[in-house]
Every structure is written in structure tokens, then in C-alpha cells.
Nucleic acid binder design. Structure first.
Lengths: 225, 225
DNA sequence: TTCTTTTTTAAGAAATATTTCAGCAGGCGA
DNA sequence: TCGCCTGCTGAAATATTTCTTAAAAAAGAA
């Protein structure tokens, strides 16, 4: 699944690329309208994420030119402006969806997912980390040709780690991600699930293990031999 | 291969849907011009079959608006009128082909075939997977020389699996494919049908079984020895 | 219409996931 | 060394989800 990100602000472009690649998409970035047109016409993308304000040629122009050339790749427009007038302009100009900056990761992924999913087809995405691969569709965790099925909660917890590669994840974050903001769950729930996941990592003989950082949280680590 | 049928006469719409589905197309029906625009803009169809006389917005208007919005899906116009003037108007307005009612099934299929084949894709008559073969015209599921007749819903559900070989299919996807986007059907409907299909798989002694991935969906699996 | 098949609904049973809790182990300071 | 705290894990208890039926309703055929 190929995505073209058109965004002149380099740090945002980089962040988008990273987030999307973690979901298993392949991402190309360009930083102005003219290159956007070159790339979009030259390669078959499944989605174009397009900033409105761009050097050389703005987003509306880009989309107009592409559509005129029969490039019908879905477009997700990004803009910092909030006036409704722009929204209408964006959609009229041929964009398929529209999102104002700043936006959060979940919203982005939801919209990207909606635009890249063809009806009746299931998208496969997997998050890879060291020797592990986590299929986000089926919640299967695999290493090489061995796989284990994760339960929904196990999946949520492990995914939180994989989305923050190398970071120490506070127990609080795991609780919020896996159980929700206002749940009754305690640290012990997290402990139990960490235990479940450790069992499965051991079963797969992964080089990855979960290390406790006392009083703070947990971190994925590569085992030293 | 997705077709949108826009026809206010319900019995005709239904008949078209049935005929086309028997050929292996996926068909959505809407019954007025405004919905037609919503659907055509929202989803990627390979063909729109469009009646000229429609409530709210007539076929010419619909096509004009879609083309203006750069929806370039091929359109097959249907009309009861026979005056040549209309034919010209239809084609000028952006339709790709034109057919007067009443028409016969073969003519319809020939024209639909011509318009959808454009992209080099072929309509299949049966889907095979492991030891199973599903005939899309008769909805017969067979293994070797044994067959069972599937009901329409059983067929839709099973076909969704076969179109996504090896994937875990979210319950949501099964609902959308089998019951439509805005139906009242619940997960229980899916469960019941999964149960029906399992019975038929067992009857055929297929190596395929349907495995539940809790909270996520279902997946076809090859039975372990 | 009447008969037949398909689809929906609903309820209890079964399966599975999740939570809770108790006991244990290691680290650390008194 | 002894408590005390934190974290880990197994097992039981609980909750939730999913399966299977049967019967009712709807759709379709004769």
C-alpha cells in the first residue's frame, strides 16, 4: 500500500512518514506542488496526503491538475485553516477527505484507513520490530514462520510498545491505551497482561523481552546473548 | 467489480441486481439522483447504470454533476424513451453507453461487459480455495463431486472470505458485504450465518474451517491433521 | 392464496477473555 | 537480619463474547 505525502514542513512530513510506515504502509514524501504532480502521475499511489499550503503550487491547484489528467488517486487534504469555507473548497476541488492540523494519530489513521480500504477487501498491515511482526488486522504476533494469536487486550498492550519503539512506556500509558481513560483497572491488570505477553514472547523465542523500569513503566529490549 | 445501479423502479432495480450478481459483480442500488451522487462520489465503482427518469435529480443532471466533480466512472444510461434526441443528449452529457428499456439480459450483459472489461479485468465464474469451489452464478459450494446449495446470504458471507484468502475478516466487513452499510443487522446475524456455513463445510468434509478471532473477526483455516 | 425456503430474532449454553486475589520473590533500608 | 515495598505469576472467580437452537417473521414459489 503506497502513500504519497506532500508537505513542505519537513518535521511534519517526517512524522507522517514514520507513523504510516509503522502501520505497514510504504511512504514517499515530496515537499512542493510540482514534485507532487510528477510523483503522482509517475507512480501508482493508493492515497495522496496533500497539504494545502505549498511552495510553487498550492494543494487546490495540485488536485485540480491531477484530476484533469485523470489521476483519480484518493486525496486526503491537510490544512491549518479552520474556516468552513476551505473545507467546502477542498472537497469541491476533488479531495476525498479533509483534515485540519493539528490532528491526532488515531484520527489520521482512521481517515487513511477509510480511504485505502476498498470495499469488501481487507487491508493487511503489520508492525515490525526486530524479529517480531504484529499483524494489526488479525492480532497475530509472529517471528519467522511461528505465530501466536494475541487476545484483544494483549494486542493493545503490545501495540503500544511497538508504536513507541525503544521508549520506556509508563504504566499509566499502557492503562490508558488498553483499558481506557476512566476504567477501574489497576497496575495489576497491566502486570498480568505483561506476564501473558512475556509468555508468548518466550514461546516464539524472540530476541525481544519486556523489561520493567521500576516505578515508571516497561521497555522493550533486545536480549544480549 | 463494483456496479452502482440507479433506478427508481424497485422491481427493475432488484432484477438488475440479481442478474448482475449472478455474473459475479458486486451491486449497490440507490433509487434517486441525490443518493446516486453520494454513493458514486463516496465509493469507487467500476460502472454506474443510470436511469434517466429519477426522483429529485434526473439522470442527465446526475451525470453532469459527477463529471464536474471528476468522477469518471463509466456510465451506462437507461431510458424508456426512444427518440434519438435523447440518445444524443445522453452521450453528450458524458454517458459511455446508452440502452433503451425494455432490454434483454444478454444485451445488458454484453454492454456491461464491454464497459467493465476496459481495464483488462475478467469476471470470474467460480472462486476456488483449497478443496472448495464456489460457483458465483448458482451459489453452489462444492468439494470434489459433492455439492451443497448456499442461500444468498450464506453465499455473500462465504464469498467475502474467499475474496480475502487467508485474511482475518472483521465481523464489520462481513456485515457490510452481506447486509449492506446501513442495515439493522447485528453481529448475531453474522454468527448465525457462520454457523450455517460451518454446517455445510462439515457436510462436505472440507479441510477448511472457520475460526473465530475473538473481538476481531473470522478467518478461514486449513484443518490441522 | 398456501406451501416452502430463507432470514431474523431471541435465549440459554458453551467458550473464552479478563479481573481479582493470594502468595511468593527480590531489593532495599533500618 | 527483618520487615516493607514492588513486581510477578498461577488459579479461581467473574464477565463477556460467541455458538447453537428453535421459533417467528418475511420472502419467494407454486
Amino acid at each position: 500500500m503506497q502513500i504519497l505525502v506532500v508537505e513542505d514542513e519537513l518535521s511534519l512530513a517526517k512524522a507522517l512518514k514514520k507513523i504510516l510506515e509503522q502501520q505497514g504502509y510504504f511512504v514517499d514524501c515530496v515537499h512542493d506542488g510540482l514534485s507532487a504532480i510528477d510523483y503522482a502521475k509517475g507512480l501508482e499511489y493508493n492515497l495522496i496526503i496533500l497539504d494545502v499550503m505549498l511552495p510553487k503550487l498550492d494543494g487546490f491547484e495540485v488536485i485540480r491538475i491531477l484530476r484533469k489528467d485523470n489521476v483519480n488517486t484518493p486525496v486526503l487534504m491537510l490544512t491549518a485553516r479552520t474556516a468552513t469555507g476551505d473545507k467546502v473548497a477542498g472537497l469541491n476541488s476533488g479531495a476525498d477527505d479533509y483534515m485540519t492540523k493539528p490532528f491526532d494519530t488515531d484520527e489520521l489513521l482512521a481517515r487513511v484507513g477509510a480511504l485505502t480500504r476498498r470495499r469488501g477487501e481487507v487491508v493487511v498491515n503489520s508492525i515490525k520490530y526486530e524479529d517480531l511482526s504484529l499483524d494489526v488486522q488479525s492480532a497475530m504476533l509472529s517471528r519467522g514462520d511461528q505465530s501466536v494469536q494475541l487476545s484483544h487486550k494483549e494486542f493493545e498492550v503490545l501495540r503500544t510498545f511497538l508504536m513507541n519503539p525503544g521508549m520506556t512506556v509508563p504504566t499509566e500509558t499502557l492503562l490508558i491505551n488498553g483499558w481506557g481513560m476512566d476504567s477501574e483497572a489497576t497496575d495489576n491488570n497491566v502486570e498480568v497482561y505483561i506476564s501473558f505477553i512475556r509468555k508468548k514472547l518466550k514461546y516464539l523465542s524472540s530476541v525481544i523481552s519486556i523489561r520493567k523500569i521500576p516505578k515508571i513503566g516497561y521497555r522493550l529490549e533486545v536480549n544480549r546473548s
